[in-house]
Amino acid sequence: MGTTGIVLIAAGAVVFILILWFIGAFNGLVRSRNEVKNSWSQIDVQLKRRYDLIPNLVNTVKGYAAHEKGTFEKVTEARSACMKASAAGDIGELGKQEGFLTQALKSLFAVSEAYPELKANQNFLALQEELTSTENKIGFSRQFYNDTVLKMNNKVETIPTNIVASLGGFKKEAFFEVTTAAEKEVPKVSF
């Protein structure tokens, strides 16, 4: 076996290792993408649950505070805007609309403070608890989702995995940021 043979074997080994690495990197990217999908579905479940709870809440409050029409309309509008963005899969827009919805719900609850009978209503209290909890769950799963997105995006952007990513058609994923302009300023509600 001459030097050419040794060179051939060495080249073969290098190519083999490269292929192994490529497979590993590709599978890693697939895994990350699945994690992102999976953690998004966790948020999605909670978002849907919130959309389902809102009509009930609005109806319950209407029974006691029928003339707070503006507040109801805002909540209903924000809800349908959210559902539209959710159906379109536009995570950036969804985050913005969710911010508005959260804000609208806050003012709905603030309004309900003025109606002692409503506050004593068991149905209302139960709905309030469910909504609070759903909001918390969205918040906690959002953190988890953004962590997985960060991991995915790092892989897509950094050398050398970015080569595999561009060959395999992996794209950066969007962070889910609920626009907090509403959260920053404390809502002022006057009666």
């Binding site: 966790q42 139960a126 608890e129 469910e130 609070t132 909890s133 918390n136 769950k137 906690f140 799963s141 953190q143 988890f144």
Partner: peptide, 16 residues
């Protein structure tokens, strides 16, 4: 006890 149960679910999500 919906509140207690909800809180446990929330923390399940937060802790993974």
């Amino acid at each position: 006890h919906p509140m207690l149960f909800n809180i446990v679910e929330e923390m399940k999500i937060a802790s993974g």
